[in-house]
Amino acid sequence: MPRRLLPRLASSVTWDHVADPAQFVEAAFRAIQTQRMQGVPILNPALRVEAIGFTPWRGRWLGLLITPWCMNLMLLPEQMSAWTSIAAQERLFYEFPAGTLAFLGGHEPELGEYHSCALYSPMAEFADQASARAVGHAALAALMIPLAAADDADKVAEAPAPPEPAAAMSKREFFGRILPRINS
């Protein structure tokens, strides 16, 4: 007999994103725009909610969200079993070739859990959706290039070399890796 799941857990089954979650991200943030962002005087009317560039990344979906009030990097779970749940004010540090970025927890009923990293707000400097989209793609690309190389425009276009994992490893990670082995 299947165990009866609590409502939250039951809905968490649907939070696995087997395919590109862009449409769910867009739906959730369109609802936010029409409901909770009403009366907030900082929305850029030239922009609309759009989720772009979602690709699988380390068992998660990495993409970018454009709204009239902010632009964020977004991470969503491919499978909740491999996902770290954090509260809205907690930070989770993800290491990208460009550096370590702090993501904040998020949750919407239509979307499930996500982690977001704020890139821009307000959005007044973006003239139109196309320019916001261009910057968004550039940000996703810049994420995968080591910082020092990002200065050099030519290098940006080349395929980035993965960083030396040993050099990037902190003491915590090192012991995190070896301790399970020692214990087992």
């Binding site: 989770l92 993800y94 070739p97 793609h137 996703l140 980035p160 993965p162």
Partner: peptide, 16 residues
Amino acid sequence: AEDGKPGTPATNQKAD
């Protein structure tokens, strides 16, 4: 990015 070419997989996830 639009072509769907995934970025280089990064190193570790830290959950401090």
